[in-house]
């Protein structure tokens, strides 16, 4: 009986050992609303799950707010001639509070249909963002939709495409989307755009 009990106890202890995932610091990107494994916390600077003592606060990054103020169409940051799949641009930005809005201004190339496609990448850990293409008068031409819920880099991809016309100016607006913001505690996000 003693042997049987000892064997069962050893198996139970083995079971205990086997049930605990061994997750190292920094091996996962934070999930929606800064979700992380039980013993780790979301480092907002890198959007990775790390040991609690390594956690840093959110920041927009070195280039995140260089275009501010850009909260209105009149203050839009000029990205130049972009569109028709021929000219590509990568823009970096940051929506640092729930009411922040970023505007960009572009012009489609001449000699093409004037189609503009934009992809926005932002960490899923913080407030979700959306993107719109507007005409110069401010009318919305197209609204972005989530095309990748979460990619391998812990980011959500939002895609939008619109027919603007050749050699035509347009505006791009980035702002918060519907979704969790940690009850207001993570109502910010940084992003980068690919425009073509």
């Amino acid at each position: 009986m003693v042997r049987a009990t000892g064997t069962a106890l050893a198996l139970a202890l083995l079971g205990l050992a086997a049930c605990d995932p061994d997750i190292g610091s920094g091996t996962y990107y934070c999930g929606p609303e800064r979700a992380c494994p039980e013993d780790l916390r979301c480092d907002e600077a890198t959007a990775r799950c790390v040991f609690p003592q390594l956690v840093d606060v959110f920041d927009c990054g070195p280039d995140g707010n260089v275009n501010e103020p850009d909260d209105a169409a009149a203050e839009a940051h000029d990205v130049g001639t972009i569109g028709c799949d021929r000219l590509e641009s990568v823009q970096v930005g940051c929506v640092d509070n729930a009411g922040d809005v970023d505007y960009l201004r572009g012009v489609t190339p001449a000699g093409c249909a004037g189609e503009v496609t934009i992809e926005l990448f932002a960490p899923v850990a913080f407030m979700p963002l959306t993107i719109e293409i507007l005409d110069e008068g401010g009318a919305v031409l197209a609204t972005g939709a989530v095309c990748t819920e979460v990619d391998d880099d812990g980011e959500q991809r939002v895609c939008v495409s619109a027919e603007v016309g050749a050699a035509t100016p347009y505006l791009v607006r980035i702002q918060r989307a519907d979704g969790g913001d940690c009850g207001g505690a993570c109502a910010y996000n940084r992003y980068h755009l690919t425009m073509y």
Binding site: L14, C19, I23, T27, Y28, A35, C36, V150, D152
Partner: peptide, 27 residues
């Protein structure tokens, strides 16, 4: 259940390299 638990733990365990995002499925 021991084997199921071990499989689940092995699926999540990571030492050094980034293996993905902490999604609801992983939770």
């Amino acid at each position: 259940f021991h084997l199921d638990s071990r499989d689940a733990a092995d699926e999540l365990s990571a030492d050094a390299e980034i293996v993905g995002t902490w999604t609801a499925d992983r939770q």
